[in-house]
Design a protein around this nucleic acid. Structure first.
Length: 290
DNA sequence: ATGGTGGGTAGCCCA
């Protein structure tokens, strides 16, 4: 008779799931974000960006169109066969396009007003299981007082709702997009001059800080380009601001604590701001080993 | 320091 082999003994001798995980090659995945300010007007610029930079995933904000008029053919021809579009006619709108398979997992409306400002996806191929949240936080109007300017209050409320949501997240997550807030003193060209300017007011910075702390997000832009190095992502269209390099860091890529160690590099593609008829924002790209 | 730009849309709204 063969000696009995207990299943527990066998299990300890061959911990198969862990072994397979350790042997699996890491996938290099690059993810980009760009407020494009009309994807139809600048479809050729997006195509050029994809050709020159070749990110695996691109998160777009301010596409300014609905799903039915999104320039799908341009992305299809460029090899971005996987697309999730949360659009609306004329305003706002976000889309995530990818060379890797993905599926939509969230389509939040943090203001309950129908504005299309957030879409989340899960990667299914390389980088399988990673959640990529693509968000376009409201600009907030001109006056930093919610009693005078309801849009400013809506911006803060949007962030508070995202904060309660982020507190409960339990999967590796990257959140990217146009946050419309420059949080650090060195994220604007003149900290003191912008303290009362929407995008850099102390209450916005504090509210964004609570969102960060709710999940322990790591600001990849400042991990790879440490303060106080210049790190702008947006310049006004007005020529005298551009000429003086009066920019702000409004666009961000933040990693959850379990994802952050897998980020290998990060850069700003500032040259797009010098193309003809550019977006007022430039793209950011992060490379991960997943 | 400045909406004195730029986009969408259709008689202004949004950034």
């Amino acid at each position: 008779m063969c000696p009995a082999i207990g299943p527990g003994t066998l299990g300890r001798a061959l911990p198969l799931p862990d072994s397979r995980k350790a042997l699996k090659a890491l996938a290099m995945v690059t993810i980009a974000t760009w407020n494009i300010n009309s994807v139809r007007l600048r479809a050729d610029q997006v195509e050029r960006f994809l050709r020159e930079q070749a990110p695996d995933v691109l998160c777009l904000q301010e596409i300014k169109t609905q799903e039915s008029t999104f320039p799908h053919a341009v992305f299809e021809a460029a090899g971005y066969a996987h697309r999730v579009v949360h659009g609306q006619k004329g305003y706002h709108g976000v889309a995530t396009v990818s060379r890797l398979p993905l599926r939509e997992v969230s389509r939040h409306d943090w203001q309950d007003n129908g504005e299309a400002r957030h879409v989340g996806v899960e990667l299914l191929g390389a980088g399988q299981g990673l959640i990529v949240e693509n968000v376009y936080i409201p600009a907030g109007g001109d006056v930093a007082d919610r009693d005078i300017n309801p849009k400013f209050g809506q911006k803060l409320d949007f962030l508070e709702r995202m904060t309660r949501w982020a507190d409960a997240l339990d999967r590796p997550t990257l959140i990217v997009g146009d946050f419309n807030i420059a949080p650090l003193d060195c994220d604007v060209y003149n900290h003191k001059a912008l303290l009362k300017v929407v995008s850099h007011t102390p209450i916005e910075v504090a509210t964004l800080g609570r969102f960060r702390d709710a999940h322990g997000w790591e600001d990849l832009g400042r991990r790879f380009i440490p303060a106080p190095e210049r790190n702008y992502s947006w310049w006004s269209y007005r020529s005298y601001w551009r000429e003086k390099d009066q920019g702000r860091r409004l666009d961000h890529m933040w990693a959850s604590p379990d994802l952050a160690p897998q980020a290998l590099g990060h850069r700003i593609v500032e040259e797009t701001r010098r193309w003809d008829q550019p977006s007022d924002h430039v793209p950011l790209i992060t490379e991960f080993a997943l």
